[in-house]
């Protein structure tokens, strides 16, 4: 049996779509329920629902063999995993955002306060640029940081940019683009190679079909 850890939240629905298309029966998951563990009808695959930031943890420890989670979470958690597929959904960008009029001053100021849900990403990004920043960890509504004066800028993921715009913020720098990824435990890939490879191949076929569908 293989275990898949699914990130609850924005990626969940599309993750289920991809898995279903790849032949993983997710029927149980679609029924309203408070359960956290689900099985496919043939009992060969177990799915566990966890907080996005916990997906890499479950997979690194080998409790889950496979995980589906956003690249932003992977970068933040920095776990040692195989990152085997870009599932292409959940596309967004990880950016530095703030008020447009402060665009120049904040870059040149020696001390910038950054509000974010991603302290590790922020630390790595700015230290690569040789900039010291004060990181203010928030757990949601990060846009409030500059609006209330808590921080100069924010680092967050942006899909359409509407929330930023409605709050008068603009993108100052783009850190990287983000999408859902399929990660695999380093031991599981070897010990359960046949099952995992078969599933990955099926998912890959689904992704290719989708891409061809978009082109045509």
């Amino acid at each position: 049996m293989i275990t898949i850890a699914l990130a609850k939240g924005r990626l969940m629905e599309e993750a289920i779509d991809v898995l279903e298309a790849a032949g993983v029966g997710c029927g149980q998951l679609k029924e309203p329920s408070r359960k956290l563990i689900f099985f496919t009808p043939d009992q060969r695959i177990r799915m566990i629902l966890v907080k996005p930031s916990d997906v890499p943890t479950y997979v690194e420890y080998g409790i889950a063999d496979i995980g589906i989670v956003g690249k932003d979470t992977l970068l933040e958690e920095g776990r040692s995993l195989y990152e085997m597929l870009d599932l292409k959904f959940g596309q967004c960008r990880l950016v530095v955002a703030g008020f447009p009029e402060k665009q120049d001053t904040w870059i040149t100021r020696s001390h910038t306060r950054v509000a974010t849900k991603y302290p590790n990403i922020v630390r790595n990004y700015f230290s690569r640029k040789g900039k010291d920043v004060e990181i203010i960890k928030l757990n949601g509504s990060v846009e409030l940081g500059p609006l209330t004066g808590l921080s100069d800028v924010i680092v967050d993921i942006v899909e359409s940019g509407r929330t930023l715009k409605e709050n008068g913020l603009v993108i100052l720098e783009e850190i990287c683009s983000v999408s859902a990824r399929l990660v695999v435990n380093r031991v599981s890939l070897k010990m359960k190679n046949r099952e995992i490879k078969a599933l990955i191949n099926n998912i890959q076929t689904v992704l290719e079909e989708r891409r061809n569908g978009e082109v045509n």
């Binding site: 420890y61 080998g62 409790i63 380093r186 031991v187 599981s188 010990m191």
Partner: peptide
């Protein structure tokens, strides 16, 4: 060296 039941070497 890897073994069943342990997610790391």
């Amino acid at each position: 060296g890897i073994t069943r039941g342990l997610g790391y070497p």
